[in-house]
Amino acid sequence: MTKRGVHDMGGDAAGPIDRHEHEPSLAERRIDAMMLLMRDQKRHLWLTDENRRTIESMAPGDYEAAGYYERWLHALRGLLVEKGVLTEAEISERLAAVRARYDAAEPTA
């Protein structure tokens, strides 16, 4: 029998559903927007199924720990590198710069 993927959870036992409403944050809506732009007719960088493949092949611990849009961001990063749009080095460098910028702006109490 084929081993079930981490995403294949239909029928599993689980606890009560948290039915709180959640207004998507600006960061979440930006991730959503970027993902749609990458797949639109103008760019057409990849297909929905490639998103799914990237998310569904996450390590089980990472998949469970990540929020929904964190998984999307993981797919975005992975596919941008895979398609040669960005390099891991560029991403790491920019990530460090963004962090440094916000750290510098932090008010000193």
Partner: peptide
């Protein structure tokens, strides 16, 4: 992940 969102969008 919020920092990563900013970095990818800027790039």
């Amino acid at each position: 992940w919020e920092f990563l969102e900013i970095a990818l969008r800027e790039l």
